[in-house]
Design a protein around this nucleic acid. Structure first.
Lengths: 211, 211
DNA sequence: GTCTATACGATGATAGAC
DNA sequence: GTCTATCATCGTATAGAC
């Protein structure tokens, strides 16, 4: 078996199981069984269970953050070229849309989101600090763009509203297909796109609220 | 030892450890050691580990939901008596403020919030379904109040905005003292109250946004 | 009724031979 | 890279002391 093949099979299985059962709820045996590799292969390729979850997170997060950064800079630079402030909704969309299209890129991506949601809820998890450290530069850039877009609002207020936004985003991404949703509350079709628009309206309006 | 004393010691220790290490990360032996009771006391008083976490959740959640329900009904009935629509900010405050004052009621309450955040992130956790089932009636009441307050907005849209709000609320409650917050972003004093006001402004404005 | 000491079967982690 | 023997720890059950 090619070496890359083994590593990826382990990463896929780990992503899936960590998402479903949590870090402590998943054993190395479960992972290696699902990946149909030998138990000791994890220690061989990744060193430890803890390094494995770090690798799982970085594999997805690095390209995602690159895309977010690229889109944010595009919005900011376009506004600067035209000598005006960036549009708030456009700025927020530049951050949010990569997250959402990523979510629809496959079942592994949804597992990853569940994994991140877990990591954020875990006060001691190593996954938590990996995630937070990696996303901080993107958040700083987003904050800077919003400060340009909303000069009338205190940067401190923008900072907190940004965290309210992150709460809404992660909550809805993680719970969209897990919530007990009455049928009459479900948008008719292409529901995901509609809910995305609703979210964007909600947070854009909240972000622009007078102090 | 008084019988209630033992049960409460177990509940306190379980709340603390489940919040810190998660359900699977906590063993009954850790709990009974921290509570300085015998290992078998858990099974005697609660039957199983799973029943124990249910008891942990219900102990806090029932009074909290009663308070929320009472305040929501007060706002609604007051508005009806005066033959006008309920105020949106007041309605949201009736739901949110008990949560926040509860959070400040002691260290055990903060553990409980961390526990709930964990439960919400866990797709399979029994704690999750206990929490969701218990809070559903309150959410239904809140939805009904908001529909009265915002007749111009589609109930379906209100429903989703309500979930965006819950995301913001749980995220900020859980992460308030865990986020890496630059000192210049921290409100000068009584920060918790200020952040609450900011949250209320954010979600009220978002909730009232034109469709 | 309440608590304790102890045991059981299952399962996970790990080190060392190959 | 793989296999296996070994050990720790888990949740739970039970018998009996107070």
């Amino acid at each position: 078996m090619e070496p890359k093949e083994t590593k990826n099979r382990i990463l896929d299985a780990a992503e899936h199981l960590f998402a479903e059962k949590g870090y402590h709820g998943t054993s190395l045996r479960m992972i290696t069984t699902e990946a149909t590799v030998n138990l000791a292969a994890v220690n061989y390729h990744f060193g430890s269970k803890e390094s494995l979850i770090e690798a799982v997170i970085e594999r997805r997060l690095l390209p995602l953050n690159q895309l977010r950064t690229k889109q944010l800079k595009a919005v900011r630079d376009e506004a600067r070229r035209n000598d005006r402030a960036p549009d708030v909704r456009q700025t927020l969309a530049a951050f949010i849309e990569p997250t959402l299209s990523f979510r629809n890129s496959g079942p592994g991506a949804q597992d990853f989101i569940a994994l991140v949601a877990r990591a954020l809820a875990d006060p001691n998890d190593t996954a938590r600090s990996v995630f937070i450290n990696r996303i901080k530069p993107v958040l700083d850039l987003l904050h800077q763009c919003l400060a340009e877009a909303l000069p009338q609002i205190d940067p401190q207020t923008i900072f907190w509203r940004l965290h309210f936004m992150i709460g809404s985003l992660t909550h809805i991404m993680h719970n969209l297909d897990k919530l007990p949703i009455p049928t009459e509350m479900m948008p008719t079709d292409n529901s995901f796109q509609e809910i995305t628009e609703m979210l964007l309206t909600f947070i854009t309006t909240g972000m622009e609220a007078p102090q």
